[in-house]
Computed example of a mutant assay.
Amino acid sequence: MTYLSLSGQRRRRTLQAAVALGAVGALGLAGCAGRDPAPESTFVLLDGSKATTADLKGKVTLVNFWATTCVTCVKEMPSIVATYQKYQSQGFETLAVAMEYDPPAWVLNFTQSRQLPFKVALDNTGDIARQWGDVKLTPTTYLVDKQGRIVKRYVGEPDFPALHTLIEELLAQKV
Rank of each mutant, 00 (worst) to 15 (best):
Y3W: 10
Y3R: 14
L4R: 15
L4F: 13
R10D: 00
R10Q: 09
R12T: 13
R13H: 12
Q16A: 15
Q16C: 03
Q16N: 13
V19F: 11
A20W: 11
A20F: 15
L21D: 10
V24G: 01
G25W: 13
A26R: 08
A26W: 14
L27P: 00
L29R: 14
L29F: 12
A30W: 14
G31R: 13
C32D: 10
A33Y: 11
G34D: 12
R35F: 09
A38L: 08
E40M: 10
S41R: 01
S41N: 02
S41H: 04
V44R: 15
L45D: 08
L45F: 05
L45Y: 08
D47A: 06
G48V: 05
G48R: 06
K50I: 02
K50D: 12
A51H: 01
A51D: 02
A54L: 11
L56G: 01
K59F: 08
K59H: 11
V60K: 07
T61V: 15
F65D: 10
W66I: 03
A67N: 07
A67R: 03
A67I: 02
T68D: 07
C70L: 05
T72N: 11
V74Q: 13
K75I: 10
M77D: 00
P78D: 03
I80W: 03
I80T: 15
A82L: 07
T83F: 12
Y84L: 03
Q85S: 14
Y87C: 04
Q88S: 14
G91L: 06
E93R: 11
L95I: 02
A96Q: 01
V97G: 09
V97L: 06
V97Y: 06
A98R: 04
A98F: 02
M99H: 09
Y101I: 06
W106L: 13
V107W: 01
V107Q: 11
L108I: 10
L108V: 12
L108W: 00
L108N: 13
N109V: 00
T111P: 03
Q112T: 12
R114I: 00
Q115T: 13
L116S: 05
F118L: 05
F118S: 09
V120M: 07
V120Q: 07
A121W: 02
L122S: 03
D123N: 09
N124C: 00
G126I: 07
D127G: 07
A129N: 05
R130D: 12
Q131M: 10
G133C: 09
G133D: 01
D134A: 12
V135F: 05
K136V: 14
L137C: 00
P139V: 04
T141Y: 06
Y142T: 10
V144F: 07
V144C: 06
D145K: 10
G148M: 08
R153C: 02
G156Y: 07
E157A: 05
E157G: 04
F160C: 05
A162Q: 15
T165V: 13
T165R: 15
L166V: 02
L166P: 06
I167L: 08
I167G: 05
E168Y: 00
E169W: 00
L171R: 13
A172Q: 12
K174Q: 04
